[in-house]
């Protein structure tokens, strides 16, 4: 048997320990595209490699709200369809907004937040949100558990810190107190890969503003200069921002991007788009200022 379908986390870990080179399969929405295109060949006709399908591991498919810690712990197998709806939508609205832009309803029923991280595409819709929210990812293997910031987990285009024998167990997402939102440009009004994307998240008590950009660099980009600028310019009592400052915020965010030209768009447009999105997101976060 070369396809394992574990029904518990222990079983999954044991299977992974016994098959060091196993391919992990979550929702299949990335991996199966490669299989169908012939880009990923399974052994043929003899057996030998192992696929571990994770969709029936209940521990991975659940999430919890840790109220004292003010975090949501998402099992890696939580689907976008779940994230898109209440109650998660109310706890992490920006992630829910990103979820609503992932593929089609069919894709959102299958695709998972853990799979999004594991694939680590520059255009992964959930990734800017996780980066902006300073989420952590917990990796599990027979040897134990380790946790790291999502931003450290993402190493490059489709490269992550996941080691052989490890799986993504969960993602811990802080629940902030302040406006947060996601924006994504694509040439179609649904079912489209991000040409460029941005997430702005705010935490009013800590006077924190974060912005992360997608599809404009090998991995998600945070923009500390823009963030610092916004923190200083926002009127934290009135929760407003001047229009001119919002424009500057967009310019600073775009300056942190490192986009490329490809068949989907040009670097120039991507840089322009993240500036506009960043500006608009900041104005949504602090709507009182003059437009």
């Amino acid at each position: 048997m070369t396809v394992l379908v574990p029904t518990s986390l222990d079983e999954a870990i044991a299977g992974l320990a016994a098959n060091g080179g196993a391919t992990l399969l979550a929702g299949g929405t990335d991996l199966m595209v490669e299989v169908n295109e012939g880009h990923r060949h399974f052994p043929w006709p003899d057996d030998g490699a192992t696929i571990i399908a994770l969709h029936r591991v209940p521990e991975l498919a659940t999430w919890t709200y840790d109220v004292p810690a003010a975090t949501v712990v998402l099992g890696a197998g939580v689907t976008w369809a779940t994230i898109e709806q209440p109650p998660l939508r109310d706890l992490v609205p920006a992630l829910a907004e990103a979820a609503r832009t992932v593929g089609s309803p069919q894709i959102r029923n299958a695709g998972t937040v853990g799979g999004n991280l594991a694939t680590c595409s520059p255009a992964g819709d959930g990734l800017p949100v996780l980066a902006a929210l300073d989420a952590d990812v917990t990796l599990l293997s027979a040897g134990g558990r380790r946790t790291m910031p999502v931003r450290d987990f993402m190493l490059g285009v489709k490269r992550t810190a996941l080691q052989p024998g490890e799986l993504i167990e969960s993602i811990t997402v802080p629940v902030l107190q302040g406006w947060q939102g996601y924006s994504k440009v694509g040439v179609r009004n649904a079912m489209v890969i991000a040409t460029a994307s941005a997430c702005v998240a705010t935490d009013v008590p800590s006077r924190s503003i974060r912005i992360a950009l997608g599809s404009v660099a090998p991995t998600v980009v945070r923009c500390p200069v823009a963030e610092q600028f916004a923190v200083e310019r926002v009127d934290w009592d009135a929760l407003t921002v001047d229009a001119g400052d919002a424009v500057e915020f967009g310019r600073l965010a775009a300056a942190a991007s490192r986009p490329i030209d490809d068949h989907r768009s040009s670097a120039e447009y991507r840089r322009h788009a993240v500036a506009v999105m960043a500006q608009r997101l900041l104005q949504r976060a602090f709507p009182g200022g003059e437009r």
Binding site: E97, S183, K184, G186, N189, A190
Partner: peptide, 16 residues
């Protein structure tokens, strides 16, 4: 939001 250009991407507000 699906009625606006950009759809689910929430790129625009009515004023834009």
């Amino acid at each position: 939001v699906m009625r606006l250009p950009g759809g689910a991407g929430r790129t625009a507000d009515v004023g834009h």
